[in-house]
Structures are given as C-alpha cells and as structure tokens.
Design a protein around this nucleic acid. Structure first.
Lengths: 108, 108
DNA sequence: CTGTATCCTACTCGATACTG
DNA sequence: CAGTATCGAGTAGGATACAG
C-alpha cells in the first residue's frame, strides 16, 4: 500500500483505513469497546473468516487495534481500539453522521 | 457497489467515498474550490486519465461534485463540490488532521 | 471458538495510444 | 484541454474445507 510514501495526509489516512471493511471494523470496536472474532463476523454481514483475519492483522500491525488472547479452551480473543485507534473516533463519527444524513435525505 | 443496500451508515459512506482517489479528489476540491481536469491530474500524482475520468463521473452521478463545461476551444471543464459534497467538509478535515498527526508522531 | 489453507473470480487501476 | 479506447496486471476479497 505504500503507506510511508504518501505526501498527502488525506491519501495517507485513506491508505491506512481504506478498503471495504476496516472503517466498519473500527466503528464496531468504537461502539462496543471490545469484540470477539465471531461477533465481528456476524456484524460484518458477508465477510469471510479469511478476509476478517487479514483486515484485523493489518489493523493490528498498523497499531490501530489491540488483540488480547486468552489461553483457554475454547479459545477467546478480544479485539479493541488502541490509543491510536481511539484517535479515529471523531472521524468514525463523521462517517456515521454523514451516512445517516444522506440516507435520511435520499430515502430508497 | 450496492450503495443502496448498506444498512450500516459507516458502510454506506465508505461505499460512497471509498477507493483510492475519491477522498483525495474531494479534498482538492474542498481546498481549491474549483479544479480543472489536468490540475487534478497533476495533484493526484500517478492517476491515469482513464481512472480520473471514472472517479469524477462516479462522484458526479452520486451528486457529490458539479461538472461545469465551457463551450470554448480549447475546452474548459471545471469541477467543484456540490452542496452534498460540501457536507463532507468536516469529514475531509478529519482525514487531513489524522494523517498529519500520525505522520508527525511516526516520522519515517 | 478462532482461525488457516487452497483455489478462484472480479474488479480496480495502470500503460499507452489516440481523438474532438 | 479534456477526455476515450484497448489491453493488461495486480490484488482485494469470496467459497469452501479443514485444523488446533
């Protein structure tokens, strides 16, 4: 994604949280605080486990989310926003707000 | 893109302004007010005319930008934010702000 | 429950040449 | 100047089965 080579701050942020699911994942984590793998899977209607795993790994390696593994059986893994991820909060709210507003003014 | 079938407002907005260039285009229009085709082309470093055309057409058909054609030779076309597009202003600023901040705290 | 492993499709975007 | 036409490559993401 060439994340480090973007001069434009908007382009940089897009490269960071772009794609079909990342902002929605972050949004769910922002709303709920903590989510488990299968909870996210249900909330992102059609995502496949392979894709969800990849998105979560990328978000983690970019430092936007935390992954907390509990060594139990059955396994339990909790995802949550990191401090950096939380700094996206108002951006996420803008997305929510704009979407709600657009949908309200352009009913299907 | 199934724009009308998103229940989640965040997902809806992502479908609207997602992709590699749309937010950057909107950002340039927000900054400069009015831009011509080749001005945008220069500002979006590596975009091809084909891709730029497609992004602009999609933004136009979604009602986010205006396309003003002047019947002159040589041709002149000006792009600008529509009222709906302008309602993305604070969202665009969040992208700019977050990118600047992240880059400042994570120097290359 | 939380993933991996394979395989595959579809779509986005790039390169390049050309036009009114 | 503002695009269009063709062609092609890369990759995001889907389907499905399986594993620790």
């Amino acid at each position: 994604m060439d994340k480090q080579h973007s001069q434009c701050p908007v382009e940089f942020t897009v490269n960071m949280v772009g794609g079909k699911y990342k902002l929605v994942i972050l949004y769910q984590l922002a709303i709920h605080g903590v989510r488990r793998f299968n909870e996210l899977r249900r909330e992102l209607s059609n995502i496949t486990p392979r894709t969800l795993t990849r998105q979560l790994r990328e978000l983690e390696s970019d430092g936007l989310i935390n992954r907390q593994v509990y060594s139990e059986i059955p396994p339990k893994v909790e995802y949550s926003l990191s401090e950096t991820g939380k700094s996206l909060y108002s951006l996420l709210l803008q997305f929510e707000k704009w979407g709600l507003n657009y949908m309200a003014n352009n009913p299907k």
